[in-house]
Computed example of a mutant assay.
Amino acid sequence: MELIFLGTSAGVPTRSRNVTAMLLDLQHPTRGGLWLFDCGEGTQHQLLHTTYHPGKLDKIFITHLHGDHLFGLPGLLCSRSMAGNANPLTIYGPAGIAEFVETTLRLSGSWTDYPLEVIEITDGQVFDDGAYRVIARPLNHPVECYGYRIEEHDKPGTLNAAALIADGVRPGPLFQRLKQGETVELEDGRMINGQDYLSAPLPGKTLAIFGDTAPCPGAHELAQGVDVMVHEATLETAMEEKANSRGHSSTRQAARLAQEAGVRKLIVTHVSSRYDAHGCKNLLAECREVFANCELAEDFTQVSV
């Protein structure tokens, strides 16, 4: 999986940072998959600076309905339609997202020429297609807000073809069934269990992407043991009380969550516009004092999961 940050500023854009949006390229060998998490104003403009096209998007996940996470959505939906794209798109988000999409399209005299489904989520599993599962948990913010945990299902182990041949099983269609862990009957009447010839399953990748939040129990559930955690760090540690009063986290709180949850890598984003490049270096230093394997995302930062 590849994560591409399209916007990393909190509240308002700056000269160097747009407001929140993240692309997740699943890079699945057969099904592909391009997902967008949040869609702040100007997201479609940011996409123009990448190799990705809006028509390739098949899912959009909105964390909450504050404008810096949402106001780019109507334009993106309309541009996708005007390009003549017919690929279906599903939007997930909190209560009110369906009304927002329907109202903005209706009042602007706009429409979509592709199948569009809008699903309003609650706490729990959002979907599971057999390859990936997405779980949502409510966060601590003034409006209904969610974080998302993306889990890739474990991949089957490698089939030991040499051992099968040594046991008298000839290569052919049976190998494919055995690779799926099935039990098959050979021509001589023997029963062969594919599980006996498979190596251990390959663990799938895990990723947690947070909306805006002050520390809360749901955050620990989302973050537990993930390969990469994307978390806001709106303000420095000295302004922690102010951050929390507005439903945000400080650098230290984001890093402490990563440490306590046993994540492998922390990416902090959603940086207040009060911080220039020097200020951002200080934010990152504060995070690394608590959790060393941490990066502060810039617009167009790419992270492999």
Rank of each mutant, 00 (worst) to 15 (best):
V271H: 11
A292C: 03
A223P: 14
N18T: 09
R80L: 04
H69L: 09
R15G: 15
N87Q: 15
A162W: 00
Q195K: 06
L65S: 09
S250G: 12
L107F: 07
T90G: 06
F300I: 13
H248A: 07
A166S: 09
C145I: 05
Q27A: 05
Q125E: 09
L26I: 00
I91R: 09
C78V: 14
R274A: 00
V303S: 06
G218E: 10
I135N: 13
L222D: 05
I62H: 05
N85E: 12
G67M: 11
H278F: 15
N293H: 11
S199Y: 04
E151S: 15
E41D: 12
A208V: 11
L235Y: 15
L105T: 03
E152W: 02
G157F: 15
G96I: 09
S272R: 04
P171W: 07
D299N: 14
G93C: 03
A233K: 03
I267F: 02
G262P: 04
P156F: 12
S273P: 06
A10Q: 11
V126D: 02
L89H: 08
Y146K: 00
D154C: 14
I209Y: 11
Q224H: 14
L139F: 00
D299T: 05
V134S: 08
H28T: 08
T20I: 14
E41R: 10
L283Y: 04
L116F: 00
Q44E: 10
S245V: 09
Q195T: 08
Q195V: 02
A233M: 08
D113I: 08
Q27R: 14
D227Y: 06
G7Y: 00
L73N: 05
A233P: 07
Y132A: 03
F5R: 10
E120R: 08
H49D: 14
G168F: 04
G93L: 01
S108F: 00
V184Q: 15
A200S: 07
G109D: 04
V305K: 03
H28G: 06
R17P: 07
N160W: 04
L107A: 11
K281M: 04
E120W: 02
E120A: 13
A243V: 07
